[in-house]
Design a protein around this nucleic acid. Structure first.
Lengths: 163, 163
DNA sequence: CAGCTGACTAATATTTTCAGAAGTCAGCTA
DNA sequence: TAGCTGACTTCTGAAAATATTAGTCAGCTG
């Protein structure tokens, strides 16, 4: 079996998981809305204000993310107020956390200003900063170049080439 | 000191690292071009073809990513050919790997079709699949809810509130 | 030195994203 | 039941991203 990457053009990326993910969260505002959701924002107005986006854009992204199942619209009621709806992360949305952590981490490393990072995410128990890391299922740290790309069941071949 | 998240509106996200990162790679095609770079693509035409994007879009993204320092344009020469330029990842670009791994992982989990994932990334040494995980600097695994958000030096307060 | 090829650039059109202002709507409060 | 407020929707328009097609340009080959 030859290396998949050397025959890159014999298979297609039409079902690429990254491309599929970006169809859902591929806009700047969608990711920033998710950022706010992870920071605890729940209400429509707060999303719009804190993300720094107009209400129409906020409404569109919230609707898309809800339709995609990353957020759910749940009723809540404050005393003396009528029933309102809050957007909160589902499991599908919470599972997006590594993406945002990795983005934050990259920005802190490569796109920060002189002042340094705005926020630090720490482990609740020990107080140490949290980072996104690559590890294999056997528990080894995986550095750059320590990986092999293998075919999965969903790989689509465009030409019936070497197996 | 009160929890930062309960006083979310007393500080601003104008210097948010995620927003800054998205200013560089905030388009769908930029991320897909980086995906290809990690898969080993180096040449202009291959980027355009494999990402499935028009040449102007490919040229624009490659130029932006090069200007931002994630890619570098290096000359190369195949025998009997003239000198050409290849785009390859810099350290700044390679450091983006956790983001793409996290995106891929989310897509494999939540946006795959019946066939399953197209590719599997494995640890070269042990063959086990590789995943993006959150860990603190003391080596603990960090689950959802195991984090505290703390202020960093770059935090911008919008109102001088409780310290 | 004309042809060829890879690597782009230019022009045009379409679509998507987003902002800003204003309007709608539900239902609690007075 | 009129007012108020949070949560949107509608409308208009600008900006950005992308597709398509058609070039340009450098420099090795013949």
């Amino acid at each position: 079996m030859t290396d998949l990457l050397t025959e890159r053009d014999t298979w297609s990326m039409t079902n690429c998981p990254i491309a599929r993910t970006l169809e859902i969260v591929g806009t700047r505002t969608a990711l920033l809305i998710l950022r706010e959701a992870f920071l605890g924002t729940r209400r429509f107005d707060d999303f719009a204000k804190r993300v720094g986006v107009g209400e129409p854009a906020a409404a569109a992204r919230l609707k898309e993310l809800t339709a995609a199942g990353l957020l759910e619209r749940v009723p809540y009621q404050e005393p003396g107020q009528r029933t309102r709806y809050a957007y909160q992360l589902t499991e599908k949305g919470r599972d997006f956390r590594p993406v945002l952590m990795a983005l934050r981490q990259w920005g802190d490393t490569w796109a920060t200003d002189e002042r340094g990072p705005a926020l630090v995410v720490r482990h609740k128990e020990c107080g140490a900063p949290v980072r996104a890391e690559l590890r294999c299922d056997d528990g080894h740290d995986v550095g750059y170049g320590d990986t092999v790309v293998d075919r999965g069941p969903g790989l689509i071949r465009t030409s019936p080439e070497g197996d």
